[in-house]
Design a protein around this nucleic acid. Structure first.
Length: 739
DNA sequence: AGCACGCCGACT
DNA sequence: GTCGGCGTGCTC
């Protein structure tokens, strides 16, 4: 034995690690390791933090500058697969890019803390076997109920108590009684007994030559050493999904995991069907509606590597894949990939980053690619594969504008005579039509006829929207709901309210009046709360139980209705108002997608677009089908104003319950705003929703050239200001909506 | 994110 | 005289 160690030499020998906790702390904290503990970077560990015990992730070697007296010991090493380096780097990268604490980003990857601890095995009941069981059965009185239980279990498969009692139609006491007499044995159920795995060996559908070529290129990208981004660009119905399924199959064949990100996951029953047809089993799913137990299973399957393929919404991006080999971002232009609450990030862009970190390919898929993606293609940073035609020879719909300035519109009517005539023809021919209006509810605004008072949300700067089917007024921003008041809260007039403007419910009313014999259905996110309701409606349309479908933007996504030959866009100008950088681009994408619903298979479709500005570049591009020329013009305009992606933009949102404190803080920020060549700070101005969920909001905008490190600039700037009175500052790098 | 510490109003 | 409000700050 050597000499007794001094505390100093012991400290020098103490192994230290830095541990990132899923909290908005400044960074990772250092901890001492007990002598017998050997975590690797990425290991989950339990550590003390103040009076609490928390689970975090070993982030690397200790940073070293923490006083020994402060250092605490790691309590335990969690028995779970460690977080891969790729995800750790993605978390650090995202934190730096979005100016969030790394712990806040880690929290998204650890959204199911219970999943870290192995589930206690579910207990099931199986018949006993061998002579003992026979003797046991002989000893008891075999009542009817007991006989039914034994009959259910005759196949030898174990069942949970719940399943067994339901199948046999007995109470739990009967089962317990049988178990006590050793006629049944309690066994641990193996997880998801016999769950089917997607099988990449199954033969795919026959692909067109263009599809084959694209599929080959995608598969080849998977075989390359580094990362790559490929845009799969093709009109609706050109068979993009089948093409990227080949890349999915190749990745699965190579033994690696796949993530497919889709917007609005709850409404893609058709996508899931296609997947299951191709691979013989459903993929794992990840989105906000997945119940807790399933989430936990999925998280564990992904981390352990048994979960081979996940389809999910944007939050799936931070799942702890063990060996991810491909990400597909379908509908890459969709704005729902931009997360707006908590950490603000664009999951499509972060997918590209994750692929770069993991050195694997990513495929962006769209019929209407975002301008950012197209610019990256033009710059040669992304590859582009174009699927030129509609599959199976179907022709593209003809798109025609209806100039509302020239139409005789009745009062409180939104269907023009020309659209009305087209609807009549379509119904006459026994075909289906769709009316598109991107507004939920009955009317977007309700006002008092006596005094002009408008019913507004008490928590937000927004009008209340009347929902007649639900029998109430609703705020679409905070969820505030109230019945329609009997009297005007302003002037006291009795039942004075008038609905202003149309929502889908009101359009439904007008359509029903115009076509009393037609069978109508409304499709909006609030009329279809459950995925089953959406699937049922889709089935009814496919079965031609519906003649006219009236819907908001959710009808634009991914549903194929062969008999739908007419699409009417009620108000094409709706998205163009307001100070949104991407208003034109988004309107184009939305209307193009809606138009793509018309004329499938062998029936030519037509699209009638009601607009007050048929000469607008968006309308002209839609009608002429010259998408890329439109995007080039958009790009030129953005370049001229040094707007993204030709310049950088960041919004700084200051919010708090006290308006004066918010104003003071935003003025203080404006005073200390950096300036310099190519740097401009605008504001403060009231944010797009000046009051949201009871918090007052002000916004400043920072605009810089493309080569400026905007994060560094923002960090230095925001550090200077001391905030008080529950005022929060949030940064939105590359904001989508602004004014 | 929690939790403790700290300085100003209505109660056993 | 104390209990408790939540504003501010810290947690390796």
């Amino acid at each position: 034995m050597g000499p007794i160690q001094t505390s100093a030499s012991r400290a020098a020998e103490t192994r230290r690690v830095s541990v990132l906790l899923p909290l908005p702390l400044g960074g990772a904290y250092d901890y001492a390791l007990p002598p017998d503990m050997a975590p690797v970077p990425g290991s989950f560990v339990v550590v003390p933090l103040g009076p609490r015990r928390l689970t975090g992730v070993v982030w690397g070697p200790a940073t070293g500058d923490v006083a020994t007296e402060k250092l605490k010991y790691v309590i335990a090493l969690v028995d779970a697969p460690p977080v891969a380096e790729e995800l750790r780097r993605l978390i650090d990268w995202t934190a730096r890019y979005t100016l969030n604490a790394p712990g806040s980003i880690l929290r998204m990857a650890m959204s199911v803390p219970e999943a870290l601890h192995p589930p206690k095995p579910a207990i099931g009941y199986a018949p006993g076997h061998g002579e003992g069981a026979v003797l046991a059965l002989a000893r008891i009185r075999l009542t009817d109920a007991r006989r039914r239980v034994m009959a259910v279990l005759a196949d030898g498969r174990a069942r949970t108590m719940a399943a067994l009692t339901a199948e046999a139609g007995v109470g739990a006491a009967v089962v317990r009684g049988l178990a006590e007499h050793d006629c049944l044995i309690a066994v641990a159920l193996t997880a998801e007994d016999g769950a089917r795995q997607p099988d990449w060996r199954r033969p795919g559908p026959r692909l067109s030559p263009a599809q084959q070529e694209a599929a080959r290129a995608l598969v080849a990208a998977g075989g390359e050493a580094g990362s790559s981004v490929t845009l799969l660009d093709g009109v609706t119905g050109s068979g993009k999904t089948e093409v990227y399924f080949e890349a999915v199959a190749a990745t699965l064949a190579a033994g690696r995991q796949v993530l497919v990100m889709l917007p609005e996951i709850a409404l893609t029953a058709q996508w899931l069907q296609r997947f299951e047809r191709r691979f013989g089993a459903p993929p794992l799913q990840w989105h906000s509606d997945i119940p807790g137990r399933k989430r936990r299973q999925t998280w564990r399957a992904v981390a352990g590597g048994d979960g081979r393929i996940v389809v999910g919404a944007r939050s799936a991006l931070f799942l702890p894949f063990r060996d991810l080999g491909l990400i597909v971002v379908d509908e890459e232009h969709d704005t729902s990939f931009k997360q707006e609450d908590g950490a603000i990030y664009n999951a499509r862009d972060m997918a590209v980053v994750r692929a770069a970190m993991g050195r694997f390919p990513v495929v962006l898929v769209s019929a209407t690619p975002s301008l950012e993606t197209m610019v990256n293609c033009w710059r040669g940073r992304y590859r582009r594969l174009v699927l030129p035609e509609r599959h199976a020879g179907a022709s593209l719909p003809t798109i025609t504008a209806i100039d509302l300035r020239a139409e005789e519109m009745g009062r409180q009517r939104w269907i023009s005579p020309r659209l009305h005539a087209a609807l009549a023809e379509t119904l006459e021919a026994g075909e289906q039509a769709m009316l598109f209006l991107n507004r939920r509810g009955y009317a977007p605004l309700t006002l008092c006829r006596a005094c002009g008072h408008r019913l507004a949300c008490p928590n937000c700067t927004a009008w209340l929207v009347e929902h007649r089917l639900a029998g109430r007024l609703q705020c679409h921003h905070c969820g505030h709901a109230t019945p329609l008041p009997g009297d005007c809260p302003e002037c006291g007039a009795h039942e004075p309210f008038a609905a202003c403007g149309p929502g889908v419910e009101r359009l439904n009313e007008e359509t029903a009046r115009a076509f009393p014999a037609a069978r109508l259905a409304i499709m909006a996110s609030d009329t279809l709360q459950r995925p089953q309701a959406a699937a049922e409606l889709v089935r009814r349309i496919e079965a031609r139980e519906i003649d006219i479908l009236i819907g908001t933007q959710i009808v634009a996504k991914g549903h194929h209705f062969p008999m739908l030959t007419l699409v009417g866009v009620i108000d094409a100008d709706l998205g163009l108002a307001g100070g949104d950088l991407r208003a034109a681009e988004r309107t184009y994408q939305l209307l193009h997608q809606v138009a793509g619903r018309a004329g499938r298979e062998d029936r030519p479709g037509r699209v009638l677009v009601q607009t007050f500005q048929p000469e607008h570049p968006v309308m002209e591009a839609l009608i002429s089908g010259q998408r890329d020329r439109f995007l080039e013009a958009e790009a030129a305009a953005r370049r001229a104003h040094e707007m993204p992606p030709f310049g950088r933009l960041a919004a700084v949102i200051v919010s708090g319950p006290n308006e004066a404190a918010v104003d003071a803080a935003s003025r203080a920020l404006a005073r200390t705003a950096p300036d310099g060549a190519g740097i401009r700070v605008l504001g403060p101005a009231p944010a797009p929703l000046a009051i949201l969920r009871g918090r007052h909001r002000r916004r400043l905008l920072m605009k810089t050239g493309r080569t400026v490190n905007i994060q560094k600039l923002l960090k230095r700037w925001l550090r200077q200001v001391r905030l008080k009175g529950d005022v929060r500052v949030q940064v939105d790098i590359d904001p989508y909506s602004f004014l």
